[in-house]
Nucleic acid binder design. Structure first.
Ligand code: ZN
Length: 155
DNA sequence: CTTGCCGGGCA
DNA sequence: TGCCCGGCAAG
């Protein structure tokens, strides 16, 4: 329940973090847009909390894919994609700015809360992987792509 | 099941 | 030196 809400908030936050102009801009070429729409749709479902349920469709739960519209069964997978939006799908949408402020050794409240000697208690881990997703591996940071210690979202 | 990373492999 | 995976630990 909360996880869902959190997820939504996370995305929304991100999408609203960059362009403070509130909806009325951004919109790339229809690649990340899915995400935004998808989430919103979900939120609606949550807040609605009414009607529908008995006639709930088969709901093709592919046991995965947090985003990416599940479109309709009439469409195979990945529509004609129009053209080749894989070599230039970037250079447009301003992905959620990383940790506000800007990387460069921010303040470190001198902490050393004995990590119980159990490898980083990865409580929060919004690294390239989770943030972008497997489908966008091309956007991950080099380190992440090589399954090494992420260099972008350092915590 | 997942994410995140070390260690190790290959050109 | 860049690139990637096996396998592990932690949720
Ligand atoms: Zn990364």
């Amino acid at each position: 329940m909360l996880t869902n809400s959190h997820a939504i908030v996370r995305h929304i936050r991100a999408w609203h973090l960059g362009p403070k102009t509130d909806k009325g801009e951004d919109y790339s070429d229809g690649e990340e847009e899915f995400y935004f729409i998808e989430i919103e749709r979900n939120a609606d479902d949550v807040i609605d909390h009414s009607s529908e349920e008995a006639i709930s469709p088969p709901l093709t739960r592919t046991t995965s894919r947090r985003c990416r519209s599940f479109s309709d069964p009439s469409v195979p997978t990945q529509p004609p994609v129009s053209s080749s939006a894989q070599l230039h799908l970037d250079d447009n949408f301003i992905w959620p700015l990383r940790q506000a402020g800007g990387r460069g050794k921010a303040k470190r409240p001198l902490h050393q809360t004995v990590h119980t000697n159990t490898r980083k208690a990865r409580g929060d881990g919004k690294k390239c992987r989770k943030v972008f997703g497997m489908e966008n591996k091309q956007l991950w940071c080099t380190q992440c792509r090589w399954k090494k210690a992420c260099a972008k979202f350092i915590d």
